[in-house]
Design a protein around this nucleic acid. Structure first.
Lengths: 335, 335
DNA sequence: AATTAGCAATCAAAAATTATGAGTGCTAAT
DNA sequence: ATTAGCACTCATAATTTTTGATTGCTAATT
């Protein structure tokens, strides 16, 4: 890959991203300062290498999946944010009152709005949340609500129907005791402590201790499960992309725009790098899309943000946006 | 409208609902026991009355919006549920452990699944919820969480950042007092009581009482706002309907399948009847759809369920499903 | 050796043309 | 009041024609 070929591939990717039309040799003459014939020769080589392809013998070239990958890894140069993008995001961080999770959500909305892609965040309370309070409230003789609150302000609740042979007020009392013993425990350690330290104590005090124990167990278990929240912004933006130009492809992608599919896709992330780009087949979502994911972690909350766009995504811009955003989010808790 | 015309219109609507093809005079001969020429004559009359229309001079007839309305008001006969529909819904009500809101959600999923339409429920705690507990938890010096819990088990929480000149622990103390004074108050009366009975008392005890008062005010206000929850099932089912056979119409309807549009559409319901059918333009959603809404109200929760389908909805079936479902839901709290 | 001009060949996409057939409205007979 | 018969209509599908952008290759040029 000599310099001219790299420049040519970069030009093809970026032109195609802008125009969504196969790129012909003629249109590149000025940029590369040579004739269309030379470009055609070079294109033939790039095509042999698998970086570009054509729809039919007399069409211009479009980047292949491999071509996009090469572009992402070697050619693109994410720049600092430009005026408008920067400005819009800044308004969010100017507002100090915003909780982290709300700031993330607002960011997504703005990114979806600016780029016209779909964005998703899957977040959850980070494991360094400590139990601040477990509160059992009796609703009537056989119904109680358990409310769990952490020191970072995460709150979940779950309702329980309790068997007739147990008194709701007894659960409340046991709850007060359990609360005292667990306050300050990292939320990830609660189950452990509950089973080995607290269960034996409950066993001594209460008749049907298995049932009672299970209520506490479920309350915390539910916390861990439900404290994963998903937020989608610009859900149908993808449908507006010109690659979805026939009913079959639209319906195919449309049926993937459900929360469950997003959840599956976002949580499916490789360990290593915190910014990852999955192009086409690699996206595990749809062959026609690119997914860019980035993890974030603040004191109290962590998660992954994903931007889903067409393969001809504005890579440089989206990467810049994500980097800037996550930097600021993570900076927020230093305050 | 003589009997034969009614039968003809009924037949046209029901055939069109099944086949999605304009209905020609020939195909109706057997059903109506007369020749195609007679049917053509009758059709001409129905067309003049505005109940049916044709796409072009030599096509069969399709029901007009007015035709559907006439059908819904005068011709359809919702029957009892058939085997499969009944069976699936029954499994839900067999499970006594299910909370009302969960039962509603499950019902919707099943209805969307059975009918292939989109269904939405917009529910909220009913005004007969009583405050069971207001709990203020200090997270650190300038952050507290307010948790509101009602006797029916609805729980909401909101985080507050408090100014430096106020001590979080002071808020907690005031909270305990406010809690004692408000327990048992209907949630709809809380604001009133807060302003006229409690505000004066806070004013005497606390320096910066406006700020403190606002925290309590916001906590309850937030409760009323956020305790509206929306649930959508089969969001993209609509797109699969054959009326969406070109990219323009698909994209038009797709961009309406967002929560906000649903919320607006569902909450926009006329007072009177608890079952309402909005056809085409009346739907306030899309000219090509029919929306059937039904209100439900149980002890603790109330809301509206909406089924959104094409204008050629299976009216009889959907109405039966909705009626059965709401009957059972409302019956649940008598138990 | 690298670049370029020139030109026939290719083929998608758009436009124009031609068939097909389901269904109508009207008239006159039953 | 109902029906058979027939010319007429027009969407839809199938077919053909036109257009134009773009290529690959060859031979000339730098």
């Amino acid at each position: 890959m000599d310099e001219r070929k790299k420049a040519l591939l970069k030009e093809i990717v970026e032109t195609y991203v802008k125009t969504v039309k196969p790129v012909g040799s003629n249109s590149l003459c000025k940029k590369l300062k040579c004739s269309s014939a030379t470009i055609r020769n070079e294109m033939a080589v790039l095509e042999n290498l698998g970086y570009i392809e054509k729809n039919h013998i007399s069409s211009g070239r479009i980047p292949s999946e491999l071509g996009y990958k090469y572009y992402v890894e070697n050619l693109m140069q994410p720049k600092d944010l430009t005026g408008e993008d920067m400005l819009k995001l800044q308004t969010i961080f100017a507002n100090n009152e915003l909780k982290v999770s709300d700031a993330v959500t607002r960011c997504l909305e703005i990114i979806s709005d600016l780029t016209n892609y779909t964005s998703v965040v899957l977040g959850r309370g980070s494991s360094d949340n400590l139990l601040r309070q477990l509160n059992i409230i009796a609703l009537d003789l056989n119904k109680v609500v358990a409310i769990v609150c952490t020191d970072k302000g995460l709150v979940e609740n779950k309702e329980f129907i309790i068997p007739d042979n147990i008194d709701a007020n007894e659960i409340v009392k046991v709850g007060e005791m359990v609360n005292k013993m667990l306050v300050g425990t990292p939320i990830s350690k609660v189950s452990e402590k509950l089973e080995f330290e607290i269960k034996p104590i409950i066993a001594k005090k209460v008749k049907d201790y298995e049932t009672v124990y299970n209520i506490f167990y479920d309350a915390f278990n539910d916390f861990l499960i439900h404290n994963t929240n998903i937020h989608v912004s610009g859900r149908v933006n993808l449908l507006k992309e010109p690659e979805y130009d026939n009913t079959t492809s639209i319906k195919r992608i449309a049926s993937k725009l459900e929360d469950e599919a997003f959840k599956k896709m976002v949580s499916d992330i490789d360990g290593g790098e915190d910014l990852q780009i999955y192009i086409g087949k690699d996206s595990n979502f749809d062959d026609n899309v690119t997914v860019i994911k980035k993890k974030y972690k603040t004191d109290g909350e962590e998660g992954t943000i994903a931007i889903i766009g067409p393969k001809r995504m504005e890579y440089e811009r989206v990467v810049s946006l994500l980097n800037y955003m996550v930097d600021r989010i993570e900076g927020k808790d230093g305050k």
